[in-house]
């Protein structure tokens, strides 16, 4: 029984963090808003340089073959630096979906080495998130059709962008015609593949939400420590302290829920889906409160375009209902905790 991450996992996280700190500054995120893809080109290159695109790709295809607990610390860094989702989706949930495709050695051979090297970007469309993120910049789209998995190239679909409150996000309506040629997994195999994909997307978002919570907290701490009113830093006032302490409490208690979900997904635990939903609710609540209390302690400056807080708040608001809204995740949690024998001492790791 051990909830801690390995030294390797922490070292890799530290390396990614060091790179993002320098290369994924708020200015770089804002620069991405001016690009069609929503991502500054330098940032796109950085993801491959850091080896992130190789992380989920099996070793036989030139990757590292790692999984959900290895990503768990990294998705938090994506959130902390508000790195656009496009870069995460390809490297993690989409790469996992491709590697799990049954009887698809040829396609895996064609796609995974390219994905690993940062030469193939992938978008994913599923009824839980009917607007496909980054479809307009992806090379390949993996799309749901009646539980089947279809793979189509961008040139073969019609794409209509739909603006999001978060200028880094590129959501698209995608029109396309499924065919037997585009089908890469039938409904029998697809059902499970899609469930894992959706859980992985939700888990990745939960990690981002944890990172976003910490970022907003850090911005709020910095601001309230230097902003003075009544002759003192406003961070010395209890009313301000308690708003931020409440965020810290929610964040602390979301972390182990998130860790457990990552572990369960990686090991195929039968309750993994419910655990992921629990993580989404816990991490989402923490992030939502961070945004609310974060802008409150910033005062009027937090309500400006200039203030970097907006980058993180808008990501929090946008992610709240992505890949499963509250109704979806609450229903999965309720079905789990209200089932016979699910509540009580000793059930946690049964």
């Amino acid at each position: 029984m051990d909830f801690t991450y390995t030294q390797d996992q922490k070292s890799f996280r530290d390396a990614v963090r060091a790179a993002f700190m320098v290369e994924a500054t708020p200015d770089v995120v804002r620069e991405g808003w001016e690009h069609a893809s929503g991502v500054a080109p330098a940032l796109e290159a950085l993801i491959a340089e850091q080896g992130l695109t190789a992380l989920s790709v099996p070793e036989v295809f030139g990757g590292l073959g790692l999984s959900d607990t290895d990503w768990a610390l990294l998705t938090q860094e994506f959130g902390y630096y508000a790195v656009p989702d496009a870069l995460l989706t390809t490297s993690y949930p989409a790469a996992c979906l491709i590697r799990e495709l049954p009887d698809a050695a040829n396609r895996q051979q064609a796609w995974l080495p390219a994905l690993s090297e940062g030469r193939l970007s992938v978008a994913v469309g599923h009824p839980l998130s009917p607007l496909v993120g980054d479809a307009d910049s992806a090379d390949l789209l993996l799309l749901w059709h009646e539980d089947e998995v279809h793979a189509v190239w961008r040139a073969d679909v019609d794409i209509t962008p739909v603006a999001s409150v978060d200028p880094s996000r590129r959501l698209c309506r995608v029109s396309w015609n499924p065919s037997s040629a585009s089908r890469v997994a039938d409904a029998g195999a697809g059902r499970e593949l899609w469930q894992r994909l959706a859980d992985r997307m939700a888990l990745a978002i939960a990690g981002e939400q944890l990172g976003l919570t910490q970022r907003v907290l850090d911005l709020a701490i910095d601001y309230t420590a230097q902003r003075k009113q009544f002759g003192k830093p406003i961070g010395s006032f209890q009313a301000v302290k308690h708003l931020l302490a409440d965020v810290a409490v929610k964040g602390e208690f979301a972390k182990p829920v998130f860790n457990r979900a990552a572990y369960a997904l990686e090991h195929g635990h039968p309750n993994a889906g419910a655990y992921v939903s629990h993580a989404r609710l816990a991490c989402g609540d923490a992030a939502w409160l961070a945004a609310r209390n974060g802008i409150q302690v910033h005062g009027a400056i937090g309500y400006t375009w200039e203030c970097d807080l907006q980058i993180f708040m808008k990501r929090i608001w946008a992610l709240e209902s992505a890949w499963g809204d509250a109704a979806y995740h609450k229903a999965r949690v309720a079905d789990w905790v209200l089932a016979d024998g699910a509540a009580g001492p000793g059930v946690t790791f049964a």
Binding site: M1, F3, T4, P256, V257, H278, K330, L338, A343, T348
Partner: peptide
């Protein structure tokens, strides 16, 4: 239903958190 489920889920969160604290102490 939401309220009960939230309280039960929070109980699990507390258990998970305690195991995490113990892991860190160990």
């Amino acid at each position: 239903r939401d309220r009960v489920a939230a309280a039960l889920a929070a109980t699990e969160a507390y258990a998970l958190s305690t195991y995490r604290t113990v892991s860190q102490l160990q």
